[in-house]
Design a protein around this nucleic acid. Structure first.
Lengths: 230, 230
DNA sequence: TAGATTGTTAATCGATTAACAATC
DNA sequence: TAGATTGTTAATCGATTAACAATC
């Protein structure tokens, strides 16, 4: 433990969503660079491949502390450690996968989760025909077991991949079982109590956004659009 | 040669990303209400289930025209038609599915696309073991066929579900084949020429966002977080 | 008319960018 | 020291919210 300036003088400034989103990208980029043997990096170099300006990078990082060295830049391994801690990905997260349809099946095998400490430790489905099926080391369980399994395996987060019609009611049951964060893939908004966090991705809506962009750039003229990177 | 530095003086206000995102939600909500036999709706009623304020709803819609009637509200079927046109979902969009791994397989069966006029009409993969396999009415084809198939089936959009390492190079080939919009699922930013539109969803990064929220609300106190709806 | 609700303007709020003294 | 780069403040930009005359 070093001589840290001021740990937290009641300044619980929770970072804006946009900032957190970008910090995730910085972390991934940093890990890539670390793997390539890089030692330090400047805000400009870090932002460039992500199309993010140097001032933005510095401001984002400054939300969480002072990590840089004037004239030098950022120590990559130190920054990786700091950002992992900030984002809460410096430890494992046991996940429940709820709804084992097409999308649920894909998420079970999705590498982007596992590589970040997110580990699916339970699968639930309402369909009696699916219950009992074995996958990997897991068995598909009925929603009736939610309460017991969530407690036993200390599950905190859930991937919700059920049909839109039942998304809200299943979400309610997840909350009742003690889940504190839900990643909603159902194409419908759901409402949760204040203490439960929520992220939603509506793939259909996203694709409509893309259609709009294309339609619009066609209108504007053959060859004028705004490019962007994600 | 082209004598237009600025094509349209007044009316080419391309709506901000956030506005388009919300309009997609309005459209879905309106279709739901239409199915329930509702005829008219006010901005307040439309926004409520989405946790969006009435002023915001009116402002968003006003980007695209005047659809409402003072004292009455909006005619649901008229508004649906208008928004579909604005978003470009009043006609079919032939899609290419590129990369037939876990996620690609899930997207092939994903109902949220088909119900909006998005229709997968070609599947590509680089793996010789997969090429030739039949699914639904489609055959998995090699990337070498891209140019020919995209032209023949008039494909404009692509779902990119390949590993991060090859995402950029495959995207380049898609662009070369004439694709004008890419939905990138690979967990890496890609860069495209100006005339090609891009939407990216990084599921791993999203899950990290959720982890951050949970971590943060734990710090703040047991029972204080910001709820939101998607 | 009285009540409801729009589209739009003005006020507020937040996020991005630029600029620069401080630091290595 | 000279050059590089930080963290932070100030300026700019954009998005959300409130307020209200106009309209049905």
């Amino acid at each position: 433990m070093s001589s840290n300036p001021k740990p937290e003088p009641a300044t619980v400034k929770l970072a804006p969503k946009a900032v957190v989103g970008r910090v995730c990208l910085y972390l991934r980029q940093l890990e890539l660079l670390h793997g390539q043997g890089e030692i330090t990096i400047s805000s400009a170099e870090l932002g460039a491949p992500l199309s993010i300006k140097n001032a933005q990078v510095r401001k984002d990082l400054a939300y969480f502390g002072q990590f840089g060295h004037p004239g030098i830049g950022y120590q990559i391994d130190d920054l990786i450690g700091a950002l992992r801690h900030v984002l809460g990905v410096d430890h494992e997260w046991p996940l429940a996968l709820v709804g084992f349809g097409n999308l649920g099946r894909a998420l079970l095998g999705y590498h982007g989760f596992r590589s970040r400490g997110f580990k699916i430790v339970a699968i639930f489905d309402a369909d009696p025909a699916k219950i009992g099926r074995k996958l990997d080391r897991l068995v598909i369980e009925p929603l009736e077991s939610l309460l017991q399994v969530v407690a036993a395996r200390q599950i905190t987060l859930a991937l919700l991949c059920v049909p839109a019609e039942v998304a809200q009611s299943v979400a309610d049951r997840l909350v009742a079982a003690g889940i504190v964060g839900i990643f909603n893939f159902a194409p419908t908004p759901i409402h949760l109590p204040e203490h439960v966090s929520l992220i939603g991705v509506d793939l259909g809506a996203q694709l409509e956004n893309l259609a709009y962009k294309v339609e619009k750039s066609r209108e504007l003229a053959p060859g004028a659009s705004q490019a962007s990177s994600y």
